[in-house]
Amino acid sequence: MIRTSRPADVIRYGVFGGPAPGNRAYPLASVGTGPSPAMSKREVMSAAASLRSNGTHSLTLAHGRYVPAIVAARPRVTVRAWEMTQLLVDSPEAATCHEVFGILFREIAHRGGERLFLRLREDDPLVRIAASCGFTKYGEETLLAGPKVSFPGVSTESVREVKPVDEHDLFRLYNASTPSRARFALGMTADQWRAAREPVGWRSREYIYRQDDAAQGWAQVIRKGRSAILTLMSHPNADNSVPALVTHAMSRSWGVGNWYVLAGDHQVRLQALMGQRGHWEVARYVTMARAITSPVTVAEARRAVRIRGLNPAVDLSERYQSSTREKSYAARNS
Rank of each mutant, 00 (worst) to 15 (best):
M274V: 09
I307L: 11
L273S: 04
Y285S: 03
A299M: 12
L273I: 00
P295W: 03
A263P: 01
N258F: 05
Q276G: 12
V282N: 06
W254C: 12
V296Q: 07
R277W: 06
V305T: 10
G264Y: 11
V305I: 14
H266F: 11
R306P: 03
R303I: 10
R306L: 14
R306I: 11
L270H: 06
H266I: 05
I307P: 04
R290P: 02
I307H: 06
R302W: 12
A291K: 13
L270C: 13
N311Q: 07
T297P: 00
V268F: 11
R306N: 13
R269T: 14
G309P: 02
V298E: 14
S294M: 07
R277G: 06
V268E: 15
R277A: 10
V261C: 08
L273K: 01
G278D: 06
A289I: 05
G255L: 05
R308M: 13
R302V: 13
D265S: 13
T293S: 12
R308A: 05
P295R: 03
T297N: 11
A283V: 09
V256H: 02
L262E: 07
R308I: 05
V282L: 09
A283M: 06
V296K: 09
E281F: 03
A283F: 08
G278M: 02
A291R: 14
L270E: 08
V256R: 07
L273W: 08
L262I: 03
L270T: 08
L310A: 08
Q271C: 10
T297I: 05
H279Y: 07
T297E: 13
W254S: 13
A283G: 08
A283D: 15
M288E: 08
R290H: 10
T297C: 03
N258C: 11
R284W: 11
G257K: 06
P295E: 07
M288V: 01
R269L: 13
L273P: 01
D265H: 11
G278E: 05
R290W: 00
T287M: 13
Q271P: 08
T287E: 15
